[in-house]
Nucleic acid binder design. Structure first.
Lengths: 127, 127
DNA sequence: ATAAGTGTTATATTATTGATATAACAAAAG
DNA sequence: CTTTTGTTATATCAATAATATAACACTTAT
């Protein structure tokens, strides 16, 4: 699992970290049951503060992507509330698609993008 | 065009405003050539500060959704850079879809959501 | 022409957030 | 017993979000 932080980005560091871990789970480069590095370890590797990593982990826990075990640390374990997830996705898609729609992106083109991205996920699942 | 601001949300006011205007353009409840309310007017209607509206308009201008004319004000006019828009959408979709993918949302279900949302847009275009 | 309304700019203040820095604690592992 | 773990508590600094006045130049009505 390679984490790449962009210090020039206007996106918060802990948010970048959260998103990359989620994408790591989606591509199965991190799998359910895997243990994330300790907050101190990852902070040292990336070159950011311990608390920033801790905040990312806390958000991941609250959103149901990991459980935090005192003995093991942050363990990938998905708490699947599918109805909630679908609702959240629809809300997010409404914003993303509206932007594209204004720029003449068709539903067909969106479908293609979706397939491309899902292909990225399934491709790496075999590794 | 009805603007609904959630003061409890953790999303910045100017961002909520920006997104709702973009969704308004997508659903054609605001059309190309239409003039947005003046910053003072809209601020008064919503009950927020003039500068917050101004910031939303500035972002919309920078992102190519409106042009700002000294005599007319903020006019909806889409500066379509489709390649850039596709690139941006893919980046956004990667994050949104990864979250769903972890929660067992299938590509088929995403396709359905996309169709539902595009239907919302085209439905209101006829009004 | 006068008044009102427009976008724009400038400055200032307040509250919140993001990120960092130490420090300490209890629990678990070696 | 020492180290490492997550966790909590403070504190500080910088950046951002939102507000408040105020002023300027330009349109547009009256």
């Amino acid at each position: 699992m390679i984490i790449k932080i962009d210090f020039q980005s206007d996106e918060a560091l802990y948010m970048q970290l959260r998103n990359q871990i989620i994408m790591g789970i989606a591509t199965s480069s991190i799998q359910e049951g895997d243990v994330l590095p300790s907050v101190r370890q990852l902070a040292g590797d990336i070159g950011i503060n311990m608390h920033t990593v801790n905040k990312a982990y806390s958000v991941l826990r609250q959103e149901g992507f990991v459980t935090i075990d005192r003995r093991k640390g942050a363990v990938v374990s998905l708490n699947v509330d599918k109805l909630k997830a679908l609702e959240e996705m629809k809300k997010n898609l409404r914003v993303v698609l509206a932007r594209g729609c204004c720029k003449n992106i068709t539903s067909k083109e969106v479908h293609q993008l979706v397939d491309e991205i899902f292909a990225e996920y399934e491709k790496q699942e075999e590794e």
